[in-house]
Simulated assay, not measured.
Amino acid sequence: MPPRRVITGRSQEPRQRFAEELRLLRAAKADSLRELGDKVGWDWSLFGKMENGHTLGSPEVVQALDQYYGTPGLLLALWELAMADPTQFKERYRRYMVLEAEAVSMWHYATSNLPGVLQTSEYARELLKAGGLKGEELDAQVEARMGRRELLLADGAPQFRTILSEAVLRTPLQDREEWHAQLEHLETMGHRLNVTIQVLPLATGLHGLSNTDTMFLRGSNGQTVVWIETGYSGELVQESATVERLQLRYDLVRDAALTPDLSRQFIERMLEEAPCEPLT
């Protein structure tokens, strides 16, 4: 293993520390990026982006580099520190999006907002606008979110279960007509064979996921990861013991929720109660 280097002021920032280590290790091997790609078996352009700090890569890539450089666990530890940095929320979310696209089943719990894959464009727009987006960025994010809905509609779509806190359905859009359309879309999606919707009544009280939006993703290899999110940050949980603890909490919440049939009736009552005319 190369001698330990002094951590400079610049490299105390986790992402830059990781990129710096990648550059130094490759320089010690005297490899070009193309040579590194050939030897490790990954696209060389990815390594260039990682060394420039444009991306952090995946844990699989980092583990392969650890093995090649003879630094067992070093790069993976630096990668985890960089991913844990609150400024890297977007990077972690991109990794989550890849896993979501590859999932064979998805289990979700919502504290206050509908999951993106069940949102109408107007629901997404109002929610993202409330978060500070506007103009072209807002339009782009709404379009991207609408693209995610295709995940549940495509051939071979994953099995998807969401448990909605009653608070989600008691928080309407400002435009009552659009809120009615959102409830209709939710009711329609609930009839799909690959979609299960349950409602957790407020009367259930406090529980293990009271303040945490949660998405479990199971891949074709049988591995499950969890994305947990608040209004300001998100975390991808992959450590098996933590995943199991979260799964137990989810199972308890599911046991307390209304059955899918009763949940469908609940949404139908909401539709009957929701005014379909805009506020004047």
Rank of each mutant, 00 (worst) to 15 (best):
R4S: 12
T8A: 01
G9T: 12
R10L: 14
S11Q: 12
S11G: 01
S11R: 11
Q12D: 04
R15T: 15
Q16M: 10
A19R: 06
L24T: 05
R26K: 05
R26S: 04
K29F: 08
K29P: 01
S32D: 09
L33G: 07
L33S: 06
D38S: 13
V40N: 03
W42E: 13
D43F: 09
L46V: 15
L46C: 02
F47V: 08
M50I: 12
N52S: 13
H54N: 09
S58T: 15
P59F: 07
V61Y: 09
V62R: 07
L65V: 10
Y68V: 13
Y69A: 10
T71G: 04
L75G: 03
A77P: 03
W79N: 06
D85P: 02
T87R: 14
Q88C: 07
K90P: 00
R92T: 13
R95G: 12
E102F: 05
E102H: 11
A103F: 07
A103D: 04
W107S: 14
H108Y: 02
Y109S: 02
T111K: 00
S112Y: 01
S112E: 09
N113C: 02
G116M: 04
S121D: 15
A124M: 11
L127G: 00
E136T: 15
E137F: 00
L138I: 10
L138Y: 01
E143G: 03
A144D: 11
A144F: 08
R145E: 07
M146H: 03
R148Y: 08
E150A: 14
L153Q: 14
A154Y: 01
G156T: 13
G156V: 14
R161T: 15
I163W: 05
L164P: 02
A167M: 05
L169S: 04
L173K: 03
Q174W: 07
D175E: 08
R176E: 10
E178T: 06
W179E: 05
A181D: 12
A181M: 04
Q182V: 12
L186M: 10
L193N: 10
I197C: 06
Q198S: 04
L202A: 09
A203N: 09
A203W: 03
H207M: 03
G208Q: 05
T214E: 03
M215L: 10
G219V: 09
N221E: 15
N221T: 15
G222I: 15
T224Y: 03
E229N: 01
E229Y: 01
G231W: 00
G231P: 00
Y232C: 00
Y232H: 08
E235C: 01
Q238G: 06
S240H: 11
T242H: 10
L246P: 00
L246S: 00
Q247A: 14
Q247P: 00
D251C: 00
A256Y: 03
A256W: 01
T259F: 05
T259C: 02
P260R: 04
D261W: 02
I267F: 06
M270I: 03
E272R: 12
L279T: 13
